[in-house]
Design a protein around this nucleic acid. Structure first.
Length: 787
DNA sequence: AGCGGTAATGCC
DNA sequence: GCATTACCGCTT
């Protein structure tokens, strides 16, 4: 009887297939990666178990070769992937593809045979395709070598070379001929999407891309190599991420109490724990001391920050705090090679480890996970929305639940759902009310700008005075405006049209520095100046404000010699720019820093005494149930940037609506008042945490004629199944951004008592899809925005 | 019937 | 994801 196994493909079409273990092959264990024949070529797959029933009418092929002697993925890891697949209603293969480092899911490998055994007529290296042609005797001989560790896996050189990253050398304009179309495409693509691997350039732009990129490297337009973050990581342990805040190691009474509570939770078998502490209250020290405790107990720890720069900063804190420990840094901007090495190292070395990283670090195979810490747990970056949608909090919860570990959620402004659970007693909570050391919470003031709305002024006289004074006294100020670019609308003076994106039908933002108008949704851009598509005229005026225009404006109103820096996604496109800007500002080379919400996150500038929120109303009135939560969190967070040193800080929030109840709560940094008001509103309208929400996104190409019929079919299906499942449905209705990248979009909001029924209803919809190749539907559980 | 292009299908 | 095959409109 043949020995049959199920192998799951970690690349399309992702399903599980049956293969035979040939006689020369060693025993298999689930979780083992193997090379399998698939169609005309070969692929990498993961053994998921024995084949229970034999497929009929197909000739079963044999496995080609194992990729490791001991399985890389243990049963827990496979179980985690299974559980994620069930939650997201997709296949395990897709999940594995999303959570494994790239090097560990490629089949483009060569087996190298040790030199001193190669003399016996064996080649020095052998490819999988060659292995399928070997005789049984040769295979048996090779397998002996493999099991003795004398035959090793090597990722193919070309494949590995394509893992290198391409980054821009300078900002536009570039020294390139206007008819060098391919070069311009690469430059534009890098500008819009940040550094990319040669591999992804080839996939997105075409097979010519790696060659063209190599030529461009010769002309100093781009650099091709390891990411700088990687290089810096080797040298001094961390990329330069601005100044690290000096930590006060002596625990305050509040911190000590929190520590005792968490230890007690851990002793009782773990669970979630909320640390609600104002900005600057010393949450980091608390995490580090808890980490020390866990490691002493022989258990591993994962510390997560919402973004790379903050993870690097935390990593540096860890290195300073622990002298005799080798922590691991893991995030999406490290090279695939590095990430792969970390993954295998964690599998092979079972000792307790401390991992610092961003959300993807949650999937690392650390042994005996004692604690997961999520700093700034309310941050939206903890939810991944593109490709595979997952909420890191849920994954973290899943992981600690299995190991009896602790999930520590820390924030000054917790997620409403988290705090609600704490209020109900479902999650224990430790509160830190005082800032550590001398610094005190800043004073917050409202500035009414209602009478400014028709003039060209952005800042009220009060704001301008405060800025001038801060600069005069040699201190620093931060100005936040949550909108990048120069002006969000370009208005044609001749025919009163605005410049719109033909693919998305939204206004295109003018970027003065790039000399382009850009669609902020799909990235399409045109060079500017341009002619009006309606009347052919060229007289546009910019309407509204973006960070770029604010920067220009500030340079005009502030005294001669004042330096203004800007920090937003545009300014930080080039790899090192973010660190350069943060570094320059913390060294005092500029007095004012203008930026988007990027500047609100975790940075420590002791000389900043003034924070200005240019438009506090932005984002407050969006038709989204979380908009006030988001605004409150952002404002408290950015206010926390002021007065972190010895000098007291001041925050000015400009608003056209000073009566809004939110302001009082922000002024007093009164999270609980905000929470009480918000939870009342949520209860009244039945929003989370009083219900579960799911957003179903439907889209099809704008020229697909049967699209309308598909939508009515979905509507009919929903009508039929929603009531029996107890799910209330809004839509399908055209999405607020009704067209994106040439696809018409529809949204459908599900509200119900539990996730199971929301999933089932989605399942019915997916089944009713008349043309899955044209009509795409996807499920987003607990969406960040319902827009 | 013969051609070139594209959509649909199978892959164990 | 990729190769093979089925299908379509159109020429000869």
């Amino acid at each position: 009887m043949a020995d049959l196994w199920q192998v799951t493909l970690v690349s399309p079409p992702y399903q599980s297939w049956t293969y035979e273990r040939p006689s020369f092959f060693p025993e298999l264990k689930p979780g083992q990666r193997v090379i399998i024949p698939f169609g005309k070529s070969h692929r990498m797959g993961v053994v998921t178990g024995r084949a229970e029933q034999v497929p009929e009418g197909v000739e079963i092929k044999s496995l080609i070769w194992p990729l490791e002697v001991e399985p890389l993925l243990n049963a827990d890891f496979i179980e985690m992937a299974d559980s994620l697949a069930a939650r997201q209603m997709t296949s395990v293969g897709r999940i594995l593809e999303a959570i494994l480092p790239r090097g560990l899911r490629t089949a483009a490998v060569t087996f190298r045979i040790d030199k001193h055994v190669a003399r016996q007529k064996l080649p020095g290296s052998i490819r999988p395709s060659k292995l399928t042609k070997c005789s049984p005797d040769e295979l048996t001989e090779l397998m002996e070598l493999w099991l003795a560790g004398r035959m090793r896996v090597r990722i193919n050189a070309q494949r590995e070379a394509e893992e290198r990253f391409v980054s821009l050398v300078s900002d536009p304009p570039w020294a390139v001929r206007p008819n060098a179309k391919r070069q311009i495409r690469i430059l534009e693509y890098l500008l819009d999407n940040g550094p990319q691997s040669l591999y992804s350039l080839r996939h997105v732009l075409g097979d010519w891309a790696p060659d063209t990129a190599a030529k461009m490297e010769g002309r100093d337009l781009v650099t091709v190599g390891e990411l700088t973050a990687d290089a810096l990581d080797e040298v001094d342990g961390t990329a330069a991420c601005g100044e690290t805040e000096p930590l006060q190691y002596e625990l305050t009474e509040e911190q000590q109490n929190a520590m005792d509570d968490m230890r007690a939770s851990l002793a009782k078998g773990g669970g979630a724990h909320l640390v609600h502490g104002v900005t600057g209250s010393g949450k980091t020290v608390l995490y580090l001391e808890m980490a020390r405790y866990c490691l002493e107990q022989g258990r591993s720890v994962i510390l997560l920050a919402p973004e790379v720069a903050l993870a690097c900063k935390l990593y540096r804190n860890v290195k300073e705090h622990f002298s005799n420990l080798k922590p691991v840094l893991y995030h999406g901007y490290q090279s695939p090679k590095k990430r792969e090495a970390i993954f295998t190292d964690l599998v092979r070395n079972a000792e307790p480890r401390l991992v610092v990283g961003t959300r993807s670090a949650l999937f690392l195979p650390v042994h005996d996970l004692g604690m997961v810490v999520m700093d700034e747990e309310h941050d939206e970056s903890f939810k991944q929305e593109e490709r595979l949608a997952y909420q890191a909090k849920e994954v973290g919860w899943y992981r600690v639940e299995r190991t009896g570990g602790l999930l520590v959620l820390g924030s000054a402004t917790p997620d409403i759902k988290t705090f609600h659970a704490a209020q109900n007693g479902a999650i224990p909570v430790s509160t830190l009310k005082k800032r550590v050391g001398k610094s005190v919470l800043p004073e917050v003031e409202l500035v009414d700008i209602a009478d400014l709305s028709n003039s060209k002024q952005v800042f009220s006289p009060t704001t301008i005075d405060a800025l001038k004074e801060t600069v005069k006294e040699g201190r620093q100020a931060i100005v936040m405006l949550n909108r990048r670019g120069y002006a969000p609308l370009m208005y044609c003076l001749d025919c009163s049209e605005t410049v719109r994106c033909p693919e998305c039908e939204v206004g295109m933002t003018y970027h003065k520095g790039r000399e382009r108008v850009v669609c902020h949704y799909c990235g399409l851009s045109y060079s500017y100046p341009l002619l009006c598509s309606k009347c052919g005229g060229g007289n546009f005026i910019p309407m509204g404000e973006g960070t770029e225009r604010l920067e220009e404006h500030l340079e005009e109103i502030l005294p001669e010699g004042t330096n203004v820096l800007r920090l937003d996604r545009d300014a930080t496109r080039r790899q090192e720019r973010m660190e350069e800007i943060l570094g320059a500002f913390s060294r005092g080379e500029a007095q004012v820093l203008v930026g988007t919400q990027m500047i609100s996150k975790g940075h420590h500038f002791p000389k900043v005494t003034l924070v200005v929120v240019a438009d506090g109303d932005l984002g407050l009135n969006l038709p989204d149930y979380r908009s006030s939560e988001r605004t409150f969190q952002l404002l408290v967070q950015v206010a926390g940037r002021a007065g972190r040193g010895d000098m007291p800080g001041k925050v000015l929030i400009q608003t056209r609506n000073p009566q809004h109840p939110l302001w009082n709560e922000v002024l007093n940094s009164d999270y609980e008042a905000f929470f009480q008001r918000e939870i009342g509103r949520r209860k009244m309208f039945g929003y989370p945490p009083f219900s579960k929400l799911a957003l179903v996104r439907i889209s099809y190409p704008a020229d697909f004629k049967q699209g309308g019929a598909a939508i009515s079919l979905f509507a009919k299906t929903l009508k039929q199944y929603s009531q029996p499942l107890g799910v209330s449905v809004l839509g399908p209705a055209p999405a607020p951004l009704s067209m994106l990248r040439g696809r018409l979009r529809f949204n459908c909001l599900f509200k119900g008592a539990d996730w199971k029924n929301l999933r089932m209803l989605f399942g019915h919809m997916a089944q009713a899809n008349p043309d899955p190749s044209k009509v795409r539907i996807s499920l987003d559980l607990d969406p960040l925005t319902t827009l």
